[in-house]
Design a protein around this nucleic acid. Structure first.
Lengths: 117, 117
DNA sequence: TGCTTATACATAACATTCTTATGTATTATT
DNA sequence: AATAATACATAAGAATGTTATGTATAAGCA
């Protein structure tokens, strides 16, 4: 099952920032594959969505870019800037808060299992 | 704190459907107030977003409408149709699944407290 | 070797969905 | 009497994704 596209809207930037925070240095195509892998194919980031997003992050100074040649092919590595790290924390926290609110609003039970946090 | 607007995108229809499932019969303005109340002002549905959404739900046959006069003012009550009830379950389940995936992807801990479900 | 698939970038036309602004009108509050 | 709240509606614009297209290299397989 792949999630309906509206759900992805508004979360893509957060996903990309968080992946960069966890993996330090990634290139675009790698990000699409990582998301696919980590979500068991349930979230598929299209290139038409990803590349403009990466360019926006760069424009906002949240990431820095290094181009490298792998053979004859260019690969662009993205790394979080200090402000990007701050932003990541903010975005992830906001999304976590939002999801709790939605869970309450929609009366969604917690996933099966024990937890004591 | 009010959530950044992108987060609401894609979830509005689900919220409206679920409220109608829980309260059976509601009118537009009432929905905006209920969401505000239930989310402690964190989610504020604007009228420019709500009314087109309600019209879309009606067009899709997911809700039925009854107009009533309260004094001289029209009020439009919305009720879930059978297919609307089915749709509500589907949308809520999909969102629940999506949120679990996002929690895993973003490494978000469960909210504080004990739970054994 | 030749064909296909995967890798790797990019952008443009289009669709969706929300924000912001505007409009109309009734009812309640100060 | 003036303002705020109730209650509907729509239109212009912004944001952000999909789909399609383009270019090119590298890898796998028959």
């Amino acid at each position: 099952m792949i999630y309906s596209s509206e759900l992805i809207k508004g979360t893509l930037k957060t996903i990309v920032l968080k992946l960069l925070a966890d993996h330090h240095r990634m290139y675009g195509y790698e990000i699409t594959q990582k998301v696919k892998e980590l979500t068991f194919e349930k979230i598929q980031i299209t290139e038409g969505a990803l590349y403009p997003t990466l360019h926006a992050l760069e424009n906002d100074g949240l990431v820095t870019v290094e181009s490298e040649f792998i053979g004859k092919r260019v690969r662009k590595y993205y790394t979080l800037s200090p402000s990007g790290k701050t932003k990541t924390t903010e975005k992830v926290n906001e999304l976590a808060d939002f999801m709790n609110t939605m869970k309450f609003l929609l009366d969604i039970p917690s996933p099966t299992g024990f937890s004591a946090t």
